[in-house]
Simulated assay, not measured.
Amino acid sequence: MKKTISLFFLFFIYSLCFSQELLATVQVNSQQLGGSNQQAYKALEKSLKDFINNTSWTGKKLQNFEKIKCGFAIVISERVDNKFKGTIVVQAVRPVYNTTYESPLINLQDQRFAFEYIENENLIFNERQFSGKNLTDVISFYIYLILGYDADSFQSMGGSQWFAKAQQIAQNSQNRNFEGWNTVNEPRNRTMLINEILNPNWSQLRSTIYTYHRAGLDNLFNQDQSPAKKVIFDALMQLKTYENSFQQAYFFNLFMDNKSDEIFNIFNSGNNGPVNINDLKQTMIILSPKNIDNKWNKWK
């Protein structure tokens, strides 16, 4: 009997140490609705957190330090019975080798988030078909997007299998009377984003994401930063291939939005070794013109 209890205890401890792939926070904000039932939103918050963190998305068992840190912040602006509308902000970060620094992988706001939810219902996801309620579909789409971004940053094109799953969710969700999936009259929609990521025309950007993180950032905190800065510089300069096509590209502009602060800070030290900062400055002015005054023109 004691042996059985010991084995059960060891299994329990193992399960705690080796859980699923994400370390996610979830926030549901309903302040715009005034004095509505807060318990329902707390229940939704808990259900989503359990759903995200306890589902096996890749089949891998990871220790806590290996899991991807991410966050889902939902602001509910409308409610009619069990139908909700609002926005969702999705964020994820990537650790940088041999440092405590965490690099932003993705940070986006989706303003077309509508779903149906009954308090305390089980959240079930089936990648082969649309759920009918859009809640787990949107959340799962962004989870696979996060997994894809993370894998791409560690291995060239390593996220393709997870991006493919996100694309399947987008295809399942077409023409289901929920906003955010349709490629017509909905700029910066989910389907557009995932289709661009998997489009071979944007493979150079995915290659840049890998080189930037794995060969660049992961070596940036060595005593001599010059080689890592040169790698990051070369990777960013490869993006000039998109100078005539990036304007309406969700994938490209999301990368620039997420990375502009980091890119600026990397090369703002005044000690850039072999990097031609003027060439980089001119490239960034072209590819991220909204940051000309607050970032690129400040480089010396």
Rank of each mutant, 00 (worst) to 15 (best):
N268E: 12
I124F: 08
D137K: 07
A151S: 15
F11S: 11
L123K: 10
F178E: 14
L48F: 00
G148K: 14
Q161N: 00
A114Y: 00
S245Y: 05
S203G: 02
R94G: 12
N37A: 04
P187L: 01
G159N: 01
N195K: 06
K229I: 03
I88Y: 10
F51Q: 00
N172T: 09
E243Q: 14
E243R: 14
K42G: 09
Y149S: 14
V138F: 02
F163L: 01
D218G: 04
D150H: 14
Y242E: 07
N253K: 06
N278S: 07
Q109T: 07
T99S: 15
Q282E: 14
N98T: 07
D152Q: 07
Y142P: 01
E179H: 11
Q155S: 08
W202A: 00
K85Q: 11
N37T: 03
P274W: 09
V93R: 04
S140A: 12
K240Q: 12
G159L: 00
V275H: 09
F264T: 11
N189W: 03
S56R: 12
K46I: 03
V275M: 08
G159P: 02
D150G: 14
Q238L: 14
I5C: 12
T191K: 14
Q171T: 05
N268C: 13
P200W: 00
G86L: 05
P95Y: 09
W202M: 00
Q20Y: 09
I169E: 09
D257K: 10
T191N: 15
L254H: 10
K49N: 15
Q161L: 02
L108S: 07
Q171R: 03
K67D: 10
L220T: 00
C17N: 12
S140E: 06
L48V: 00
L22E: 02
K229V: 03
S226W: 10
S30E: 05
W202Q: 03
S156R: 11
L16H: 12
F221K: 05
R112P: 05
S203P: 01
Q225V: 04
N253G: 08
T58K: 09
G273S: 08
A114H: 03
N189R: 03
T4W: 06
A166T: 00
